[in-house]
Amino acid sequence: MIKKLNARNIDAKECFYGHKACGGCGESLALRLALKVLGEEAYLSLPAGCMAAVSFIYPNMAFKNNAVITPFASTAAVATGIAAGLEALGKEAPLSVGFAGDGGTADIGIQSLSGAIDRGEKFIYICTDNEAYMNTGIQKSGLTPFGAATTTTPAGKAIHGCVTEKKNMFEIAAAHGISYAATASIGYPEDFLNKVQKAKECDGPAYIHIYTPCPTGWGHGSEITVDLAKEVVDTGLWFLAEYENGEFRLNKKPENFKPVADHLKRQARFRHLSEIEITQIEEMRDRKWEKMLKNWG
């Protein structure tokens, strides 16, 4: 039985410190918490994105771990390459971890991720999902939800933000028959810590998709980052689930969802939405949950 991790028993040492992310950045919190579990022996691969931009500012280096910036499309390829290298060097318990944003995972990096999972090598891939390309200036990605205003899907008179739905990246990763896949949210940090622990222990590729609000891109106060990440699970717009041994499992089944409108209106990217669109978002959520409850129990 693995010991359950919580705020009291995690490693007090910091492995990600002095970075230049915006105040209240959800993505840097996810990275920091993950590194508390993975430890300083993990080798990190990060593509061009916020987390690479804020930590590798010459001559600053915000990571205690060995870390490398990879080409945008090849986070998982570099991570598995490092894993093979560590094995060749005869390292005990080699641990290679890829951290990519939503664009680097669902759009640009999807082929290398798919290939790496297919090869079945032991590595961990953590997708920090802030629902747009934040580093380059808030462009729509494959994981941008319906209705969200970004610079490439602005809220105009005719079209109100993003017209497509979020890609089911967790299901796509799980469909490879991956050893371990999970979704998490920084609003539920203990749940995330334990999922990273499980990914570390598992023997094979592991994928964790974590929801990380971005105050700059979403237009909300920096102090409510964690609140929003908790609310999004309580409203049913995001879910906490795991895929293990070929089975899906929901970690949290809310009996009553919190009202979606209050949650959305706290973010500037959704402030333009009309009642009809909010109802549409609720219908999409209900459809998704109906399917999940039916298939995953």
Binding site: G18, G23, P59, N60, M61, A62, F63, N65, N66
Partner: peptide, 21 residues
């Protein structure tokens, strides 16, 4: 003493973030 090349040692932090607040 300034790191040369495209890499530097880990946790090489030269400035603070204090003026952000």
């Amino acid at each position: 003493d300034v790191p040369m090349g495209s890499s530097c040692s880990s946790f090489h932090i030269c400035d603070t973030n204090a003026a952000w607040r």
